[in-house]
Amino acid sequence: MSFFSKIFSRDNPNAKMQSLYSAIVSEGRQLAWYEEAQVPDSIDGRFDMIAAIFSLVLIRLEKDDDQGQNLAWLTEIFIKDMDGQLRQIGIGDMIVGKHVGRMMGALGGRVGAYRDALEQGADLREAIVRNIFRGEQPDRAALDLLASRLTTYHAALQKCDTDSIIAGQLPASGPVA
């Protein structure tokens, strides 16, 4: 491919991350999160669950120093999707950017909270109440179930090789037991 072909190519360089993003969204939409772990089945609840899975994947991929560009592309896909979702529910052009900016801030906070909890020993249940249940104390059994399931999912991601993750081959979370 010539130099000019590369510069003016219509190929989307982040397309290789689309399979991973689709797998993250699919996992975040698994019914067991909502039915068994009592994550609110609402627009906010679905965002919170997808953001939780997205955060766990980012935490895993950050461990590979050469994944910086892929992480940027994955985040770009997330932003584009959130922008589209907001427009679809009727948020106007004038304020979509502000909403997306808040969502990105929320995502960054979640990544830090889940990293602290899962890798630094902070309280995961506290992070879950704040970031998934938005400060409302859920049923204790549901909270314990969700914490256990996120911990197990995080551990399963650590065992996956990077190429499989990038290809969208995420571990199955399975039903909550």
Rank of each mutant, 00 (worst) to 15 (best):
D93F: 07
P138K: 11
D161G: 07
F78L: 14
S2W: 05
L124Y: 07
D123G: 07
R115K: 14
L124P: 07
D163I: 01
Q158Y: 06
D41A: 13
G112Y: 04
Y114R: 09
V57G: 01
G28H: 08
D123K: 13
V100C: 05
S148D: 10
A51E: 03
K80W: 00
D66W: 07
S26W: 01
G28W: 04
A127H: 05
L124V: 08
I7P: 03
L31Y: 07
D81P: 01
M82Y: 01
A23R: 08
Q69E: 11
M82C: 05
G97M: 08
D83H: 10
Q67G: 02
S164K: 07
A15K: 13
L20G: 00
R110C: 07
P40Q: 07
I50K: 01
A51Y: 08
M49N: 09
L74Y: 03
L107M: 12
L145M: 12
D144G: 12
P40L: 06
D139M: 02
G108N: 13
R115L: 11
L71E: 00
I24P: 05
S173M: 15
D116Y: 06
N14A: 13
F133N: 11
Q169L: 12
V96R: 12
S5M: 08
I166G: 00
V57P: 02
I165M: 01
I165Q: 00
H99S: 08
S26R: 12
L107T: 04
S5L: 10
W73S: 04
E36C: 11
G92F: 09
D11E: 15
R102Q: 11
S173Y: 06
A147R: 05
V100W: 02
Y153N: 08
I43Q: 06
Y21H: 09
S19F: 05
C160N: 09
N12W: 02
Q88Y: 05
D41E: 08
D65W: 06
M82Q: 13
L58W: 08
K98Y: 02
S173D: 10
S164D: 14
G174I: 11
K16C: 04
Y34L: 08
S26P: 03
R140Q: 14
A127Q: 08
M1C: 10
S42F: 07
G84W: 00
A177K: 14
D123P: 10
L86R: 00
A155H: 11
